[in-house]
Write a protein that binds this DNA or RNA. Structure first.
Ligand SMILES: [Zn+2]
Ligand SMILES: [Zn+2]
Ligand SMILES: [Zn+2]
Ligand SMILES: [Zn+2]
Lengths: 132, 132
DNA sequence: ATCGCACACGTTATAGCATAACGCAATTGA
DNA sequence: TCAATTGCGTTATGCTATAACGTGTGCGAT
């Protein structure tokens, strides 16, 4: 899915996520956009839905939060499963891809004839700075 | 963490999960236990907290639900990361382990000096029966 | 024995996350 | 022009999870 021009609301939500130094919940985004006229959660969720579809934002399932894609130039959807390491202390997120992991999981699903649609890989723990 | 004898509430919650043929939300569990005196979400969440700690129940982050461990005899905590394939049509869950995947993720975290505490791997899609 | 502590439990209230359902306006394409 | 699509705003609601308080019970230390 390639990203068409963003609408006003989509651009606002995306900008907030890009500027943030970590993942944000939908309601946190809402609060940051009240000055721009946002009043209701749906305004955020609807924008997020599109941004996720375009692949420019990722959802972190294990913490109910959203983060701008760390690889804006590439197309995340095109190079396999996206994995995240989430620091539970400072909140920073590292996004990475590992084709070998993709391969192993694909092997498993093929063996089980399971049709994978969306795979979540999230490692929670402490980043180097916080573990010290 | 080895499981000590379960308390009454813990046993009731575990029994519900074991008998279910798929993951259940905490509130669904609550409803199933109203006849046994359960009245409030906390009764379920407190039991789940312990069952998760003992490793006999897993939490599916991507669907906010809980499932009994599929390997009751083994100790899931002892053989690496637990991965799940979740059918979005029939709700069935397959639990598996792949040491090669564990290895790759561990390699990555070591390289980044990230101290992993808990890793989530969840594949959502369609099981063989439902994909047909 | 009784004090202190840990733990499970019950209850009420609240916080946090997400969507349903309605209507309106602008765009597009037949 | 008409119908279909898409985005938007608003209100209301539903689902998920925890805070805060108090009770009772078991158990080891004094
Ligand atoms: Zn990305
Ligand atoms: Zn950190
Ligand atoms: Zn297990
Ligand atoms: Zn299925």
């Amino acid at each position: 899915m390639n990203a068409p021009a963003l609408t006003k609301n989509q651009a606002l939500v995306f900008e907030v996520l890009e500027k943030a130094d970590g993942p944000l919940s939908a309601y946190t985004i809402l609060d940051k956009l009240r000055d721009h006229g946002f009043r209701a959660p749906l305004q955020v969720y609807r924008a997020l839905e599109k941004l996720l579809e375009y692949g420019v934002v990722h959802r972190l399932e294990s913490i109910n939060a959203f983060v701008a894609c760390a690889h804006p130039d590439q197309n995340c959807h095109s190079h396999g499963i996206v994995a995240f390491a989430i620091c539970e202390s400072c909140g920073h997120v590292m996004e990475f891809h590992d084709h070998e992991v993709d391969h192993r999981l694909m092997d498993w699903t093929r063996g089980k004839k399971f049709k994978a649609e969306k795979t979540t890989i999230e490692i929670r723990g402490l980043c180097e700075a916080c573990a010290a």
